[in-house]
Amino acid sequence: MANDSLFGVHAAALEVRSQRMGLLASNIANASTPGYKAKDIDFQEALGAAENAGGFDAEALQGATKFRVPLEMSMDGNTVDLSTEQTAFAENAIAYQTTLSFLNGRIGQITRALKGE
């Protein structure tokens, strides 16, 4: 992949983080829907699959998406634990921002090299 050498693992990481944010948002949105089963992405597995495939791969992401094992079952069959989801969402947002700064740093580095400053 052409962008692999430029951004390394961070391009795929950003995509996985973005997908995970959507999934966690879905869990939070369905916090009070009876029968909804919470899902999450195993980040390490998803990133490993993306690295092996040489880029972001939607199918590999499907494989890394798993149902969350609930701490306790609710009577309506919903497996969303709000505090767990909130924590995961916050952690994921910070990781996303971290990846963004890595990318920003890389872009700045390349730009400086191109300008010959």
């Binding site: 959507g22 999934l23 949105a29 369905n30 829907t33 029968g35 992401l61």
Partner: peptide, 15 residues
């Protein structure tokens, strides 16, 4: 009565 709506294309789910 709440119902989950799944989106196959993106894997997201809304209510």
């Amino acid at each position: 009565v709440f119902q989950t709506e799944y989106d196959k294309a993106t894997g997201l789910a809304t209510v």
